[in-house]
Amino acid sequence: MKILVPVKRVLDYNVKVRVKSDQSGVDLANVKMSMNPFDEIAVEEATRLKEKGVATEIVAVSIGPAQAKDTIITALTIGADRGILIQTDQDVEPLAVAKLLKAVAETEKPDLIIMGKQAIDGDNNATGQMLSTLLDWPQATFASKVVVENGEAQVTREVDGGLQTLGVKLPAVITTDLRLNEPRYASLPNIMKAKKKPLETKTVADYGVDVTPRLKVLKVTEPPKRSAGKKLADAAELVANLKSAGVL
């Protein structure tokens, strides 16, 4: 069984976000970039399926600038076998990413695609569901547990009000939630090995997909700031303040 794992290079989740003063976007110059945390969970899950003997090959694919190679290498370090970088300096929107991934899936013919539920830069939470629709494969989003057997993935999902378990016939698209697993740390030997694994570089044109943005970003601004209030001496003072604020 072959698993495809799309991985995105994003601003590291620990970095403070700075909006550019000309309102053209968020400042990404000279800041730490990392693999989207949900995608790390996806690579980890695929790797565990391989270690269990369920999967035989894991292909990591990223759409992004030349530096997204590092993101793929991170995936290869966790356990992916080879990587595909679709190199572009353009900001590719979820629908276009889904179209590119569909094209990759049509040539790679994976049995399963595991990806993040959400990229923490755009916070769209859209690409997996779009890809499932375009491929006409079943979807199971927000996975907190995955069991693959008899040509089906049984996926426990985090939904409003609790958990839901679905069975999706393979091939299918699964998106990961935070509690699916805890990604392993990279060991030095695995980092060395990763650098020797195959990594192909492609262009958007190779897949014949139109990635022209559909949305025009008019501006990116800072949200209204909340200022720190007062520190109080004790619970009694807190209750008094909450009463006069009219919330108790």
Binding site: V17, V26, D121, D123, P223
Partner: peptide, 8 residues
């Protein structure tokens, strides 16, 4: 976007 640290 970015966990509400920017508005687009």
């Amino acid at each position: 976007i970015y966990a509400g640290n920017a508005l687009e």
